[in-house]
């Protein structure tokens, strides 16, 4: 279906962005390079381009999200697309429609790109098989969150000038984290040395097989790190089932000045947000001069613009498609 555009180099020759597992170093770097330009564009007064003019993007969020959804919306609008936000709480999903029926229904409305977040791992891939447009995974369960990993890589690259050879310590709830999984994939591909730090109850099975060094002692895991990436710990997970209390978690796994002193003196501090101040990160650290948490948000928009741009290059165009009235209705695959 996806017909390559003949007049532009195609750094990402795929219809969807679903996972970081299969991204190549070249693809990642190309997206980051485009995102660098997009960041410049976003800093101008006139932020708008017309690359996606006439295109429709649907934000389909089955899980509530503030920053990712608005980030995609802004990115698409800055590229000239029409954006529709599907609010799941008022949609037919709550009336019992299956995920596949939702996909078929949306597909009939002929969107060009659908951005999907879903609480179940694999749901976005399943949906992508049932539509004719491009699909971007904005987070599926504890599986993947590709644009987060790309924006983190861009933030690190801009803060440190490089990624290869850096020690990146990812700390917190690895077990439930799609951010950690995507980051491990991207950072490894770019040559960083990734560490994961968590109590054993918040590590998935066989953690050493994920491509990271595993630490259950944060003081050791953070030693010499260039980047310290804290993950959010959800409140319901710190009341005795995975960790005993937020107090104990902060004591042993929260980022405070004492632990940060073990990292490199110029280490940068990251957090995908939203933060629990005093649970995984001390309030003064979140606002530290070495914190790049706000840059992460800015780079989020830039990276999403870049992802939309590379996917748009693969979208079919009117001049290479047959006349519309001869075109069959979108094939329904069940």
């Amino acid at each position: 279906m996806a017909i390559q555009s003949s007049n532009a180099p195609n750094p990402y020759p795929h219809r969807h962005l679903l996972t970081c597992e299969r991204l190549t170093e070249g693809e990642i770097n190309a997206i980051l390079d485009i995102a660098d330009n997009a960041a410049d564009q976003s800093r101008r007064f006139d932020k708008k381009r017309d690359l996606l003019r006439g295109r429709t993007l649907i934000n389909l969020f089955f899980e509530s999200s503030t920053r990712t959804q608005s980030s995609f919306e802004l990115a698409a609008k800055r590229l000239g697309a029409d954006v529709m936000n599907m609010n799941v709480s008022t949609s037919s999903v709550t009336k019992g429609e299956t995920l596949i029926d939702t996909a078929i229904t949306l597909n009939a409305m002929r969107p060009d790109i659908i951005v999907v977040r879903h609480h179940a791992a694999g749901a976005v891939e399943l949906l992508s098989q049932k539509v004719d447009c491009s699909v971007i995974n904005a987070g599926d369960g504890a599986h993947q969150h590709p644009t987060q990993a790309l924006l983190d890589a861009l933030t690190i690259r801009r803060a440190k000038g490089r990624i290869a050879g850096l020690i990146v310590a990812i700390c917190g709830d690895i077990l439930h984290s799609r951010v950690a999984r995507s980051n491990i994939d991207v950072l490894n591909r770019l040559g960083a040395q990734v560490r994961i730090i968590a109590p054993s109850t918040l590590l998935p099975a066989a953690p050493e097989r994920l491509g990271a060094q595993v630490f259950t002692d944060m003081w050791k895991g953070i030693e010499g790190a260039d980047v310290v990436m804290m993950l959010r710990l959800q409140r319901e997970r710190m009341e005795g089932s995975y960790v005993p209390s937020s107090r104990e978690f902060f004591h042993f796994f929260g980022l405070d000045h004492e632990k940060l002193a073990r990292a490199k003196p110029d280490a940068v501090i990251m957090h995908p947000g939203p933060m629990n101040r005093g649970v995984e990160i001390a309030s003064t650290i979140a606002d530290h001069s070495r914190s790049v948490i706000r840059e992460q948000v800015e780079m989020g928009v830039a990276v999403r613009m870049a992802v939309l741009e590379v996917l748009a290059r693969n979208l079919p165009r009117d001049d290479d498609a047959m006349p519309d009235e001869q075109k069959p209705a979108p094939a329904v695959k069940r």
């Binding site: 005795g240 005993p244 104990e248």
Partner: peptide
């Protein structure tokens, strides 16, 4: 090992 010895939520074993 568990809060109130109820067998449901673990205590602050580290602290």
């Amino acid at each position: 090992l568990t809060k109130g010895l109820l067998g449901e939520e673990m205590t602050e074993i580290g602290l």
